[in-house]
Write a protein that binds this DNA or RNA. Structure first.
Length: 289
DNA sequence: CGTGGCCCCTGTGGGC
DNA sequence: TGCCCACAGGGGCCAC
């Protein structure tokens, strides 16, 4: 669900947690937590009963103070003052909710992990579909090593770097941009919005784009993500920030989810196609063919 | 190695 | 009203 703007808004809304001591944690579903040494994708359902019991609390920051909140692309991490780290992948439906002392957790279903903080507040990880999860690291350096496999953050990548990376693949540009190893942070919404703004057809082979087109694309990526962050992210269904607030960036969408409607630029009908198993909406007129 | 296909899950909305 | 199917913001793993 969340792409870079949503994860960034979640990060910002969690900043008040800095300095809090983690007093305890309750884990209701162990299969959403991946510990150091586990298989990278976590334990499968059938294996999870057999996996060794280890001190979950230690790995989930209990006894430490939340010191930093990092984001790279769509990945978020809580770093404790002793260097322990928990990476949060939100998948499609994941949420991190900060619940103040005495406040009730509004939506309590699918709350898999609940931390108790020293001010009486709680931090809750929910995820209905469980495509997301938590990855624990003994030290932030181990997290950094994992993140090194990701491409540059989509907010930072410049046109030259983007072109270099796109030139290595012949996949359709819409598919390539969703590959987090190529550039980190874009998903199906903002890829479509950026390609529309840059007037590039989503099926064009990535290595076919010229320097001028990639310059437009990089500028659009930055503009689209920046505007979405300012609007607090796109709340289509599940996404809310840590305070429970929805974002208003859906109002900015020009093509995402609008197949069959009129193109906001030329008024012709927007088309829908399927690339890499995901539907992509585009304007065959404004985005060439 | 790059690439395409399949799978992991639950919830919702539309068509019948 | 109810049922069934398609589809959803992601990404890991497998076989070519």
């Amino acid at each position: 669900m969340p792409e870079l703007p949503e994860v960034e808004q979640i990060r910002r809304s969690l900043l008040p947690l800095r300095g809090r001591l983690v007093e305890g944690v309750r884990v209701h579903r162990r299969d959403v937590v991946v510990l150091p040494g586990d298989p990278p994708g976590g334990w499968s359902r059938s294996q999870s009963d057999a996996r060794p019991r280890r001190l979950l609390g230690r790995h989930l920051l209990v006894g430490g103070r939340i010191e930093r909140l990092w984001r790279h692309g769509k990945r978020l991490a809580l770093i404790a003052d002793d260097g322990r780290a928990v990476e949060v992948g939100l998948g499609m439906t994941g949420q991190l909710l900060a619940v103040g002392a005495g406040e009730r957790l509004e939506a309590h279903g699918h709350a898999h992990v609940l931390w108790r903080l020293d001010d009486g507040g709680r931090l809750v990880f929910r995820d209905a579909r469980r495509f997301g999860g938590l990855w624990a690291f003994e030290h932030e350096a181990d997290l950094r090593a994992k993140w090194a496999a990701l491409g540059p953050d989509a907010l930072d990548v410049d046109a030259a770097e983007l072109r270099r990376r796109l030139s290595r693949t012949a996949r359709p540009v819409a598919v390539a941009l969703m590959d987090q190893r190529l550039v980190a942070g874009l998903g199906n919404i903002y890829v479509q919005e950026a390609l529309f703004g840059a007037r590039i057809p989503p099926r064009r082979p990535a290595n076919d784009l010229g320097a001028v087109e990639v310059s437009r694309l990089a500028a659009e990526v930055h503009a689209v993500l920046g505007a979405a962050i300012e609007a607090g992210g796109s709340s289509l269904r599940d996404y809310v920030d840590a305070s429970g607030a929805r974002g208003e960036a859906v109002r900015l969408h020009r093509v995402y989810g609008k197949g069959g409607e009129a193109c906001p630029a030329c008024g012709r009908v927007l088309e829908r196609l399927v690339l890499g198993g995901r539907s992509v909406v585009w304007c065959p007129f404004d985005q060439g063919s």
